[in-house]
Nucleic acid binder design. Sequence first.
RNA 1: GGCUAGGUGGCAGAGUGGUUAUGCAGCGGCCUGCAAAGCCGCGGACAUCGGUUCGAUUCCGUUCCUAGCCUCCA
Length: 458
Amino acid sequence: MTLHLHDTLRGKKIAFEPLKEGEVTMYLCGPTVYNYAHIGNARPAVVFDLLARLLRRTYKLTFARNITDVDDKINQASIDTGKPIEEITARFIKAYNDDMGMLGVSLPDIEPRATQHIVEMVEIISTLIEKEFAYEADGHVLFDVTANSDYGALSKRDIREMIAGARVEVAPYKRSPHDFVLWKPSTPELPGWDSPWGRGRPGWHIECSAMAKKHLGMTVDIHAGGQDLVFPHHENEMAQSTCAHDGVPFARYWVHNGFLSLDSTKMSKSLGNVLLVHDMVKTIPGELIRLALLGAHYRQPLDWSDAALEGARNMLDRLYGAVRGIEVSAAERQSVAVPATVIAALEDDINSPKALAEMFTQARQLNKSTDEQERHALAAGLLAGGDLLGIMQIDPEDWFSDPGSSDLSNDEIDAMLIQRKDARENRDFATADKIRDQLATQGVTIEDGPSGARWRRS
RNA sequence: GGCUAGGUGGCAGAGUGGUUAUGCAGCGGCCUGCAAAGCCGCGGACAUCGGUUCGAUUCCGUUCCUAGCCUCCA
């Protein structure tokens, strides 16, 4: 099985072939840095981090994830807080990378910022005007959607129908209601750059076209993002780029992740149900959040809840439980093969739930086996699979003994276990069970095995 | 209203034109001093109504429902 991806433009799953043999370029629409990332923002970061890991196994990958650091919301945040824009963006870029890092998301190869690509944006806009795909009106430069016959292909929309159903008041300077802004004037107090059309700032969509071209070339292999970006953002990017490049395709595969809801409702600030990753990682292990995000297929809707998190914890308990007590060196887990079934599942359009199911199948084989050599090999494979998925990244003992907010220390637990061991050896089961019950009330479970007792927190 | 994606067992969540998902929960058994963990086994599902077919949860169409988009948004 080779990698297959669901391509939004073609509307089906397609065998993946990069433009250049052995090399892949991928562009992901990253954050607008005016606030902390919430759990919904984390989904594409995690999903496409997994895709990047998968691609790096077989290709030389160049992965770009942009930063939108010029935007009305950022301007508003600056006005609201009285802090300079640069201070706000710098702070939230760092927070974003730190928070995503806690979820096992690696940094991309390139992290281009919009404000550092104004020249390239102006260049594309000029080209579009020259080729008569764009026009200047009332200080703005707008893209003329009627000049692009393919407009609407990505989001499967018909411009004529859209015009009929338009709900928004149309700016008077637009020739057609769906023409979108490439460049707009800026006021003296807002960020702005000199351009052939006066001092102004870019529209939202143009940055991705400019940065993708500069860093990855006219055609990227994979363009990724959230489903909500399909229209208008990606539709517009595609229109700009293909028109500026005389029809050269902009992206070979468009992949979009589904939405995340929170307890079956949309996350929104007005409802006050926004979960920030920055806060969550203070009390929840990052890889637990990551696993919960990978628990559903990336294109499916995912409902975030305590139950979902609980389910992920059970899964990690089972996986860690399987490899617990088996020593696998770091060098070994790096060199050993990831189970083929896990790879196959992931190569089938990033089917992470299937991949996890295969991990459990291997875990059961491991639990079943009494042959130490076989157990060791299965554990190593399981850990290698964990490395690919970005889970099982800590020592199993630490996983099961993390004191968290408990006021009972690990040493105290060990001491109680020694007392219990003595009691058991004297066949004083009443005392032994009393100790076990006492620990149970504090969330510690004892597991007696052939090589003595071990414990875990639940 | 339009477009897109969905509706699977108690819950989560894959998949398939005829045979086991997987995890949690439940039931029975093994193991254990008793438990826990683990192992073995069991039950239980494919929204609705039609159609195609020897046979459909899987393909086609209807209806109902849900989510996203159509305006900034992962």
